[in-house]
Amino acid sequence: MKSNLFTVIFAIVMGVVCSLVLTAVAEWITPRREANEKAERYRNVLEIFNIAVAEGAANQEIIKTFEEKVTIVGDDPANPDYYLYGRLIAIPAQGPGLWGPIEGLIGLARDGTTITAVSFYKQEETPGLGGEIAGKDFTDRFVNKKLFDTRGQPALKLVRPGRAKGDYEVDAISGATMTSDKVQALITAAAEKFKSKEAE
C-alpha cells in the first residue's frame, strides 16, 4: 500500500498532465472546428443561390466565395434573418419535424416571392417516406411557385399528392402526411418571419 501523500501527489500530477494535453488539443483544433461549422453553413447558402462550389472545396475557398458574393442581413451572423446575393434572397427555415428538427433554406427571386430553390439539409424523417423531403424530386416541386400572395401574406400550401394547381400549391409526399404538415408549418413560419424582418 502506497502512502497517502503519494496517492494525492499522483492524482494531482495525473490531473495536471491530462488537462494540459486536453488544453493543447483544444487550442490546436478549435479554429479548424469553427471554420468547418462556418463553411458548412455557407455552403448550404451558396447552393441555394446556385453558386458553383467544387465538391471537395477547402473551407477557406467556400468562406471566401461566400464573403465576396453574399450579404448577411440580421444582427446575429450565426443566426441571420436572411441572405442576399445581388437581389436574390435566401431565407432560413427551421422547425420541429416528426422525429427531429428540420433545417432548410428557401431561395427567392428578385420579386421577393417566386421560389428559385428549396433545400432541407438537415432532417431525420422516416426513411423512404418523410425522408424524401431532402430529395430533389420533392424540392424541385417548389421551383417557380410563389411564397406570398398578392397582399403579401404567406400563401404556399402543401396539398394532397397529385392535386397541386396554380402558383401557390405544391404536391406533398404521399404517405407522409405528418412530415408534410411540419414542413408546411416551418415554411409558413419562415415566410412570416421574413416579412416582419423585411418591413423593419
Partner: peptide, 24 residues
C-alpha cells in the same frame, strides 16, 4: 479506476477533437 478513466477520457477527447477538426 479513477486514473484509468482519466487516461481513457483524455484519449477519447483527443480523438473526438481530431475528427471535429479534420473529418467534420
Amino acid at each position: 479506476m479513477i486514473v484509468e478513466v482519466a487516461i481513457i477520457a483524455t484519449f477519447v477527447i483527443v480523438f473526438d477533437q481530431f475528427l471535429k477538426g479534420y473529418y467534420w
